[in-house]
C-alpha cells in the first residue's frame, strides 16, 4: 500500500506547472456482479479514488472494500467478514497505464488499459478495453472486465459455492475533473 501512495502523490505533485494534465475523482463508480443459478449478487461502490496523468497515460485507482453497498445486509456482512476479509485488507487498488493515450482522436475512443490489480492482498496483472471520453472538461473512463475469484485467494465455503460465481464481472465509470 505504501507504493500506491507514492504513485498517487507523485501523480498529483510532480510537474505542478502542467497541473491541467492531472485528473482526479473521489466519487468514481465501480460495481461487481456475480451470476449463479441460485442468485444474482451486485454491489456498488460510489467512492472510488482515481488519478490520471494525461501526459503519460498513468492511472492509479483505490477503493475501500467496506464502501461496496449490497442489496442484502447479510451478503455485505459475509463479503466483508469472510470472503475479502476487510479488517485485514480494507482496500483494493489498481495501478497501470492507459495505452496509446496520446493517439486517441481528440480523447474519445476505445483503447486498452493494463496494470496490476490488488484485491485481498493478492496482485494480478490485468488488461482490459476502456472507453475514454472527454466531455465538458470531464475525463471519463468506462468499461468492464472479468476476474476469477480464485486468483485473489478468496475462499468461498462449500455450502454457498453455488450461490457465488467463479468469475465476477467488474464494471467501472470514473468521471475525473481537472486537478489543480
Amino acid at each position: 500500500m505504501k507504493g500506491f501512495y507514492i504513485i498517487v502523490i507523485s501523480l498529483l505533485l510532480i510537474n505542478q506547472v502542467t497541473a491541467q494534465e492531472k485528473y482526479l475523482t473521489k466519487e468514481g463508480y465501480i460495481s461487481f456482479f456475480s451470476h449463479s443459478i441460485v442468485e444474482d449478487i451486485k454491489a456498488d461502490n460510489n467512492q472510488v479514488l482515481s488519478v490520471v496523468d494525461t501526459s503519460s497515460g498513468e492511472i492509479a485507482i483505490q477503493l475501500l472494500m467496506r464502501s461496496f453497498m449490497f442489496k442484502k445486509a447479510l451478503m455485505q456482512e459475509h463479503f466483508n467478514e469472510n470472503y475479502v476479509e476487510s479488517y485485514k485488507y480494507p482496500k483494493a487498488s489498481f495501478t497501470g497505464h492507459i495505452l496509446n493515450f496520446e493517439d486517441l482522436d481528440e480523447l474519445n475512443g476505445i483503447t486498452e488499459i493494463t496494470g496490476t490489480l490488488t484485491v485481498h492482498g493478492r496482485e494480478k496483472e490485468i488488461s482490459t478495453k476502456v472507453l475514454v471520453e472527454m466531455k465538458n472538461n470531464e475525463l471519463i473512463l468506462s468499461g468492464n472486465f472479468k476476474v476469477d475469484v480464485a486468483d485473489f485467494d478468496i475462499k468461498i465455503p462449500a455450502i454457498v459455492e453455488n450461490n457465488i460465481a467463479k468469475t465476477i464481472k467488474v464494471s467501472f465509470e470514473l468521471r475525473h475533473n481537472p486537478y489543480n
Partner: peptide
C-alpha cells in the same frame, strides 16, 4: 465509517 483513502469515507 468505511475507512480512509486520501479522505475519510462515511456511508
Amino acid at each position: 465509517c468505511t475507512g480512509y483513502l486520501l479522505d475519510v469515507i462515511m456511508v
